[in-house]
Computed example of a mutant assay.
Amino acid sequence: MTSNEIIVLLGGVHSLGFAVFHLAFWKLFDWPRALQSTNAATRAVAQILNLRLIYVFLGVAAACFTLPGDLLDTRLGNAFLAGMSLFWVGRTIEQFVFLRIDHPLVHALTVLFVAGAVLFAAPLFLQG
């Protein structure tokens, strides 16, 4: 196994971790109670978007675990890796725009977002 394949697999672990994290949102953020103060459309959209994001993270993890060679050796795979890196770059920027909270857990999440950007971009630059 090459170092780039290991990095792609770590990207899969990262994505799987975020899928599990998002599965916990209902309990972590007490969504049944907390979302009651919003209207029905906002409640639905928040939960639907979260469920779709879980699906995306699981799909990314599956691709990283089952197709590391394709992700590294094809233009489509490289575009996928670049797209995921840009996803995490965007998420990092959004953290500073929408979640301006000085808290260690918020800072830890920011580090994990940057880690995702680096994990998915690194194989593109290390291929030479």
Rank of each mutant, 00 (worst) to 15 (best):
R52I: 00
I7W: 01
F125S: 01
T42M: 11
A46G: 02
F29H: 11
V56F: 15
W26E: 08
A122G: 04
F125M: 07
A61Y: 03
S15L: 02
M84L: 09
G17N: 04
V89I: 14
L124R: 06
L71P: 07
H103A: 14
W88R: 10
L58S: 14
L67T: 03
A122N: 08
G69H: 05
L51P: 01
R33K: 12
L105V: 06
F87P: 03
A121I: 00
G128L: 15
S3L: 13
F29Y: 10
G12Q: 07
T38W: 11
W26T: 09
S37F: 13
G11V: 00
G116Q: 09
L71D: 10
A61E: 09
T42S: 12
A63P: 06
T74E: 03
A108C: 07
H103G: 01
L10W: 10
A19C: 09
L76Y: 04
F113Q: 14
A63T: 04
A46Y: 04
A115G: 04
G116P: 08
G77R: 00
L23D: 10
G59I: 02
F57Y: 11
L105G: 12
F57D: 02
T110F: 04
A82H: 03
V111L: 14
D70C: 06
R52N: 09
G69P: 02
F18D: 04
P32G: 14
T74G: 09
L86Y: 13
L51H: 08
L67M: 08
R91D: 01
Q127R: 15
W88L: 11
A122P: 02
T42W: 05
T92G: 15
S37Y: 09
L119S: 08
I93A: 10
V97N: 02
M1P: 05
H22K: 09
A79W: 03
G90Q: 09
W31H: 15
L23M: 15
L99G: 03
R75G: 08
F120C: 07
H22D: 03
T110K: 09
G128K: 14
F98I: 00
W31L: 15
